[in-house]
Design a protein around this nucleic acid. Structure first.
Lengths: 133, 133
DNA sequence: GTATATTTGTACGTATGTATA
DNA sequence: TTATACATACGTACAAATATA
C-alpha cells in the first residue's frame, strides 16, 4: 500500500490538504452520508502526519457542517436533512448568524449549523427554512 | 496581582472556562467592539494555562463570530455590521448554511459567518439580510 | 456485570514558519 | 534588522466515552 502524499513544504498547510482530500471523497460519494470516517490515528498513518494535523483537518470539515464528531465515536459524514418550512410574516426580516452557547444548548444545535432568524424568532438552519407565501 | 482562577479538575474544560470569561467581557463591554484582545501569551499567563488552551478558547469565539483573528495581529472583537437588505422574490425559499471553501474564497467570507440562501442566490450573512415586500 | 481495548477530547511541551510592527 | 504575535506541526500524557471480550 502507498500512503497518500502530502507536501510538507511549499504548498498549503498539511491540515488543509488533508481536509481537501476528505472533502473530495465526501463529494464523490467515496465517503457516503452516514458513513464513519477512519479513526484519527488511521488517517494520520495514511497521510504520514501527526494526529494534530488530522484533528485540525476534521475541525475544518466539522465547521463546514460536512461531518459530525462525538467523543469515543469515529467522525461521521452528516446526513442531508429535510427542513421544516416556516412562513415569513409580511414585512419581516430574515437573517442568519452562528448560535450563542445558550441557543446551542437549548435547541441542541450541532457544530457548523447557523441560526435562521425570521422576524423575532430563531430556528436552527439545519432543520428549518423560510418561505414567502 | 492575582491570576484569574481556572479549575483544572472537575469543572468544564479549561478552554471553555476561558472562552466563557472572555465572552462575558465582550458582552459587558469590558472588551468593546474593535478592541484588541491581549496576546495569546498574556491570556495564557493571566489564567496560568498553556497557550494551546487559549487558542482553543479563541477558536470557539471565532466560530461564534464574536472575534476575528489575523496572523501577526492580536485577535479583535468584531464590529457589528450594517446589512444590505435584499428583497425576497415571491414564493422563494430562504435558508442558511456554512459556506463552501469556494464561496469563502470568492466572497471573502470571514470565519463564523454563514451564507444566506435566497432562492438560487447566496449572500454572506454578515453583510446581507432578506425581507418580504 | 466487569474488565480491557479503542477512540476521541483536553492539555501540556517544543520547534519552526510567516506576517506584522 | 529585530522583536512580537499568530499559524502550523510534531510530540507526550491522561481523561472520558464508547465498544468489545
Amino acid at each position: 500500500m502507498f500512503r497518500d502524499v502530502i507536501s510538507h513544504h511549499g504548498g498549503p498547510p498539511v491540515y488543509q490538504q488533508i481536509a481537501a482530500t476528505l472533502r473530495g471523497e465526501i463529494a464523490q460519494g467515496i465517503l457516503p452520508a452516514g458513513e464513519n470516517l477512519p479513526s484519527e490515528k488511521d488517517i494520520a498513518d495514511r497521510f504520514d502526519v501527526g494526529r494534530d494535523s488530522v484533528r485540525d483537518a476534521l475541525a475544518l470539515l466539522k465547521a463546514e457542517g460536512l461531518i459530525e464528531k462525538r467523543r469515543g465515536f469515529r467522525s461521521r459524514v452528516r446526513q442531508p436533512l429535510v427542513r421544516t418550512r416556516v412562513e415569513i410574516p409580511a414585512g419581516a426580516t430574515v437573517s442568519a448568524r452562528m448560535p450563542t452557547p445558550e441557543e446551542r444548548a437549548v435547541h441542541d444545535v450541532p457544530d457548523g449549523v447557523p441560526m435562521l432568524l425570521i422576524g423575532s424568532d430563531s430556528y436552527p438552519a439545519n432543520l428549518y427554512e423560510a418561505y414567502t407565501p
